[in-house]
Amino acid sequence: MSSVTNLILSGVGGQGVLLASEVLALVAAEEKAEVKQTEVHGVAQRGGSVVSHLRFGDKVYSPTVRTGTADILVAFERLEAVRYGHYLKPGGLMLVNDLEVMPGQVGDFKPYPAGIMEFLTGKGFKILEVPATAKAKELGNPRVASLIILGALSVHLDLSREAWDTVIGRRIPPKLVDINMKAFQTGVEIGTGIKVSASA
């Protein structure tokens, strides 16, 4: 099954993880024989943890990714990088957005956990921090963060820029295409520009 690319996208409900997964799956569908994508979103999951599995290649059976086999984990939020980190293969690439979303509280108050990036680095993953939320604000629309993340991801995938442009043009509402294209390009620059920190 080495011809199959395994991806995990994780984040918090409302962040655009599912839209990003859909765009990514559609791009893969443009170029690959088979694509499978699945996600978990249960009851009232606004603000809940969201995870999407995506696999593409010549022949794909299961829509779900095995733990320890994902080539890349894309986390739209830091805590959600740790929550699904075990899906990543040893030394795999992790793209982590620069965002911390405080979990909703039931019962006693718990502060947001410290030391996430150090913990993940210590696990031996290759980590690419993507300041997507900050850059999206600079671009004037916080909602385009997911396209920045996809842009950074695209650098590490074997999918053509034409396919990305086609799908973004088709899937995103016309009046938002320009800013999303710009966001995607910003992501591409981040993906190529920032040095990947491998350690441990």
């Binding site: 809940g48 943890s49 899906y87 979990p103």
Partner: peptide
């Protein structure tokens, strides 16, 4: 899942999540 089948057939344990090493605060539905 593929992990469940691998465990049943080959006794292959899935990779455990990091909850044992890190406080993965849950995000409860609300």
């Amino acid at each position: 899942s593929p992990d469940v089948v691998a465990k049943a057939v080959f006794d292959e344990e899935p990779v455990q999540d990091f909850s044992g090493e890190f406080d993965l605060i849950v995000r409860p539905p609300q």
